[in-house]
Amino acid sequence: MKKIAVSLIAVAYSFVAFGQQENLSNSTKPIHAEEPVDGYVKKTDMENRKVIPYANIRQTDIAYSKRVWREIDLREKMNKAFASPKSKLIDIIIDAVMKGELTAYDPTPTENDPNGDSFKNVLPADQVMARFGGDSVLVEEFNENNEVVSSRYESKSFSGDNVIKFRIKEDWIFDKQRSVFEPRIVGIAPLIVPQIPGMDSNVGLQPVDAVAGQPTNADPFDPFAVPPVQENNTGDAEASPNVPTPLVNNTFVPQVDPTPAFWIYFPEARHILVNKEVVNRSNDATGLSYDDVFIKRMFASYIVKESNPEDLRIKDYLNDGVERLYESERIKKSLMDYEQDLWSY
């Protein structure tokens, strides 16, 4: 009986040994690996993950629904992972679109899609790169007299560094069957600033004071930018008035708000994001994918619009940047208050 037990234990240990991945760092004899592992183990769990579906909701069980549009600013500390060179969100989306794994939708308003975010007009993959400034660049060759002798077009590698914001369209739904009030993301859009002649090319960067040479506190392309503090003739500090166009080097620079380059249907994108790991500053073994980040709401954002009969954005009825921020927080609080009021007696 003891021999049988020992044999079973030995067989079990052998299966465990074969089941574990070979660790090259602990090898006692030379091993010629065909594919060296970059680390002690190879991360395969992220590649094999599948999307966890939402709970099914019937239309008759929706007691309350509210649609909001948010913007994620990658310059905020909590959103730095979205712009990490190791796993940049815009690179993941563009790569999936160019491979045909994701469908990009045209954000241009049309008759059948007045807001441009209803996922009705497909944007061809060859036009996606054109939204970021084109996929080729003209290269000219000069002689010793500084004369153009030849020119050619070369492919330009895509860079998502100028994408510093994402817009999210989501629905807040109260399911009376499950007694759950939850948000569900419908679409994601990278925001870009259209290239207009005469406009500052440093989009998304902190503007520099032409006199002092120091960064100011206001960003002309940020809808929630705080006006810089200036000194008046008496020496007292006062906030500068809102002007339609900022002055840079004594020249007017047109203000253009970031607009969506294209829209991505989030339920379709989940199957791509679930296999893309998010970089964590504190721990390399996060085990979190981009799908987890969006589902668990692990990002900072502000509301730019809520559904209303007039279809107005916050900036359409508020000019001051601080007031827009307060309005965003008011909308957010109203959603939270609705859930709290459900359980008040």
Results as ranks from 00 to 15, higher is better:
Ser7Gln: 11
Ala10Asp: 03
Ala10Leu: 15
Ala12Glu: 06
Tyr13Ile: 15
Gly19Glu: 05
Gln20Thr: 09
Leu24Lys: 11
Pro30Ala: 13
Glu34Gly: 15
Val41Ala: 08
Asp45Tyr: 14
Tyr54Gln: 11
Arg67Met: 09
Arg67Cys: 04
Arg70Ala: 09
Ile72Ala: 00
Asp73Leu: 01
Leu74Arg: 06
Lys77Val: 10
Asn79Tyr: 02
Lys80Ala: 14
Phe82His: 01
Ala83Ile: 01
Ser84Met: 01
Lys86Asn: 12
Ser87Leu: 07
Ile92Arg: 00
Ile92Asp: 08
Asp95Val: 06
Ala96Val: 01
Thr108Phe: 08
Asp117Arg: 10
Phe119Pro: 00
Phe119Ser: 09
Asn121Thr: 14
Val128Glu: 00
Phe132Gly: 00
Gly133Asp: 02
Gly134Cys: 08
Ser136Asn: 12
Leu138Gly: 01
Glu140Met: 13
Glu140Asp: 10
Asn146Glu: 15
Lys156Arg: 13
Ser157Ile: 10
Phe158Cys: 02
Gly160Asn: 01
Val163Thr: 05
Lys165Ser: 09
Phe166Ala: 00
Arg167Ser: 11
Lys169Thr: 07
Asp175His: 08
Lys176Glu: 11
Gln177Asn: 13
Pro183Asn: 12
Pro197Asn: 05
Leu205Met: 10
Leu205Phe: 12
Val208Glu: 08
Asp209Tyr: 03
Val211Ser: 09
Thr216Val: 15
Thr216Glu: 06
Ala218Thr: 05
Asp219Phe: 05
Phe221Asp: 08
Ala225Tyr: 01
Pro227Cys: 04
Val229Cys: 07
Gln230Asp: 13
Glu231Tyr: 10
Asn232Phe: 04
Asn233Gln: 13
Asp236Gln: 15
Ala237Lys: 14
Glu238Asn: 09
Ser240Asp: 10
Leu247Pro: 00
Leu247Ala: 06
Gln255His: 06
Val256Ala: 08
Thr259His: 02
Trp263Glu: 01
Ile264Arg: 01
Pro267Met: 08
Glu268Asp: 15
Arg270Ser: 10
Leu273Thr: 01
Asn275Tyr: 03
Asn280Val: 11
Arg281Cys: 02
Thr286Asp: 10
Asp292Lys: 04
Val293Trp: 05
Phe299Gln: 01
Ser301Leu: 02
Ser301Met: 07
Ser301Gln: 02
Ser307Tyr: 10
Pro309Phe: 10
Asp311Pro: 04
Leu312Ile: 04
Leu312Glu: 09
Lys315Ala: 11
Asp316Ser: 05
Tyr317Gly: 07
Asn319Trp: 12
Asp320Arg: 02
Arg324Lys: 06
Ser328Arg: 03
Glu329Asn: 11
Ile331Gly: 00
Lys333Asp: 10
Ser334Gly: 02
Met336Tyr: 12
Met336Asp: 14
Trp343Gly: 06
Tyr345Asp: 14
Tyr345Arg: 14
